[in-house]
């Protein structure tokens, strides 16, 4: 035990030499950077993202158009900047709803157990029985294409991972001494579950939500690519890739730059997930 502790401490010391938690820093910087871009897009974008300039179609990157223009003469740089707004919104809303639903369901299932637990876990089994993307596409097909359909589908399908994570934590924590102590103070079940068990059980889910954001972002881009998410002419990275693919041999910049944007934001979330896990793990 002592040996493990000391080697653990040395590991932490080495990380600090690298400038603290490297993954957390890099991840936070990337995500924060995109957040700033999204917020200031109207100010820093050199052109209107949907303005079509028929005289400047398919221009390669240059001084006037840093990322070039697409087949409608729209500025790719401006569209990438504006796209950050939609794609960050997708990764945020696509994570927060499943997170909230899943955490509540997981906490209830884990805390009350018995029939409630069995029922909720069977529902999870049913959702799990379908392939993830197929189920999402089916839901969106029923609701009609669009971003709100995407969020609803995401919430209906994505909550199961959070529910399972939180449930397993609550199952352990509900027998913890501080839960007994909370009972001895007269607190009711809902208060103990919500105020004491959930905050302790949620750490793993917070870390997972960051890697989930990557998945949601790629999903959103994929759904838009298939024409079921964001509708043209709105600037969104997935659509931009889709629209540019016909020109990939002649105008690579139409697909490459939004593609790089997707990859960089996804990497930012990934780093953030790793760093957060490390940080919370060490702090615990």
């Amino acid at each position: 035990m002592l040996l493990v502790r000391s080697s653990h401490a040395r590991f932490g010391w080495r990380l600090r030499l690298l400038g603290g938690n490297a993954a957390l820093t890099i991840g936070a910087l990337i995500v924060l950077g995109w957040l700033v871009v999204a917020l200031t897009a109207p100010l820093i974008a050199p052109y209107d993202p949907i303005f079509q300039d028929a005289t400047a179609r398919l221009q390669s990157p240059g001084w006037l158009h840093p990322f070039g223009t697409d087949n409608f003469g729209r500025d790719v740089f401006a569209r990438v900047l504006w796209g950050a707004r939609i794609d960050l919104q997708i990764s945020f809303l696509g994570v927060i709803f499943p997170f909230m639903i899943g955490a509540s369901v997981g906490a209830i299932a884990g805390y009350f157990g018995g029939v409630v637990d069995m029922l909720l876990m069977r529902i999870i089994d049913i959702v799990l029985a379908f392939p993830f993307l197929v189920l999402m596409l089916a839901i969106i097909a029923i609701l009609g294409p669009g971003l709100s359909s995407f969020y609803i589908a995401m919430a209906l399908v994505g909550w199961i991972s959070y529910a399972r994570l939180v449930r397993s934590q609550v199952l352990v924590l509900k027998h913890a001494d501080f839960a007994v102590a909370a009972r001895s103070l007269g607190f009711g079940h809902m208060r103990i579950m919500g105020r004491h068990l959930l905050p302790n059980a949620i750490l793993g889910s917070v870390v997972f939500s960051m890697s989930d954001a990557v998945l949601v972002l790629l999903n959103g881009a994929a759904i838009s690519y298939l024409g079921l998410g964001v509708q043209p002419p709105v600037a969104e990275w997935g659509i931009m890739v889709a629209e540019g693919q016909g020109f990939i041999t002649t105008a690579w910049w139409i697909t490459a730059f939004p593609g790089i944007a997707i990859v960089s934001l996804a990497m930012g979330f990934s780093f953030l997930a790793d760093g957060l896990g490390e940080w919370l793990g060490v702090r615990e």
């Binding site: 001494d177 909370a182 001895s184 007269g186 607190f187 105020r195 302790n200």
Partner: peptide, 25 residues
């Protein structure tokens, strides 16, 4: 009614204070 008694009229302390306090509060 029992909840009002617990903590309100009868308090309880335990052997292991580190595990009987909520770690994130």
């Amino acid at each position: 009614a029992m909840r009002k008694v617990r903590g309100g009229q009868i308090g309880m302390i335990f052997q292991n204070p580190s595990s009987h306090l909520d770690p994130v509060m």
